Amino acid sequence: MLRWKDVLIFATYGNPEPPRRVEKTEAEWEAQLTPAQFRVLRQQHTEPPYRNAYCRSYEPGVYRCAACATPLFDSTAKYHAISGWPSFTQPSSKGAIRYRFDSSHRLHRIEASCNVCGGHLGHVFNDGPAPAGLRYCINSESLRRE
């Protein structure tokens, strides 16, 4: 189980090696993704809160990266955080997520990206439920549930 100190260590000293890497040009990503997915995954935009596909959806399944299909979260780790975006307590594996410090918009947060393709997913915070206390606040556009 990952904890906040693990996230800080990864963001500071380096992330686990991904199981594989997917690299494409921005033009290739733009051709593959919908315009909304491209804005979120490749341009680090944020979708509107509460009006997204998985905010209020709790059906069983695996949430994969919409760009490269890497398993990121299991539905058993999803919970209702009242944040406006899908929230998860843990990633599907230690190496699924890449962490980096993000001080954009005058905020100090940790960005969560797909560790395989580098697509922006959202952010991780230390205000989640016990036992780990993590809240992965993720854009629906960056995910697909299977």
Rank of each mutant, 00 (worst) to 15 (best):
Arg3His: 15
His45Ile: 00
Tyr58Ser: 02
Arg21Val: 13
Val116Glu: 02
Glu17Thr: 09
Glu17Asn: 07
Ile110Asn: 02
Pro35Trp: 11
Glu59Gln: 14
Ala53Lys: 15
Glu30Val: 06
Tyr13Asp: 10
Ser75Gly: 05
Asp102Leu: 01
Leu2Ile: 10
Thr25Ile: 12
Arg64Val: 07
Tyr99Gly: 03
Glu17Ile: 00
Ile82His: 13
Leu33Tyr: 09
Pro48Phe: 05
Val62Phe: 06
Val7Arg: 00
Glu59Arg: 13
Gln32Cys: 00
Arg3Met: 10
Asp6Tyr: 06
Arg64Leu: 12
Thr12Phe: 01
Asp102Arg: 03
Gln43Ile: 00
Arg100Glu: 10
Gln43Ser: 00
Val7Thr: 07
Ile82Trp: 10
Pro18Lys: 05
Ala27Ser: 14
Arg109Gly: 06
Ile82Arg: 10
Arg3Tyr: 15
Arg100Ala: 09
Ile97Cys: 08
Pro60Ser: 14
Leu41Asp: 10
Ala11Arg: 03
Pro49Tyr: 07
Asn115Ile: 03
Phe10Cys: 03
Pro71His: 07
Ser57Gln: 14
Glu28His: 12
Trp29Met: 11
Thr34Pro: 08
Ser92Arg: 06
Val62Met: 12
Leu8Asp: 02
His105Ala: 11
Arg98Ala: 13
Arg64Lys: 14
Val22Glu: 14
Phe38Glu: 00
Pro48Asp: 14
Arg39Pro: 00
Ser83Val: 04
Phe10Leu: 05
Asn115Ser: 03
Trp85Phe: 07
Trp29Ser: 08
Asn15Gly: 07
Tyr79Ala: 02
Tyr63Trp: 10
Arg109Thr: 06
Ile9Cys: 02
Gln43Cys: 00
Arg42Pro: 13
Pro16Leu: 04
Ala77Ile: 00
Ala27Asp: 15
Glu26Cys: 05
Ala66Val: 14
Lys5Ile: 11
Cys55Glu: 15
Lys94Gly: 02
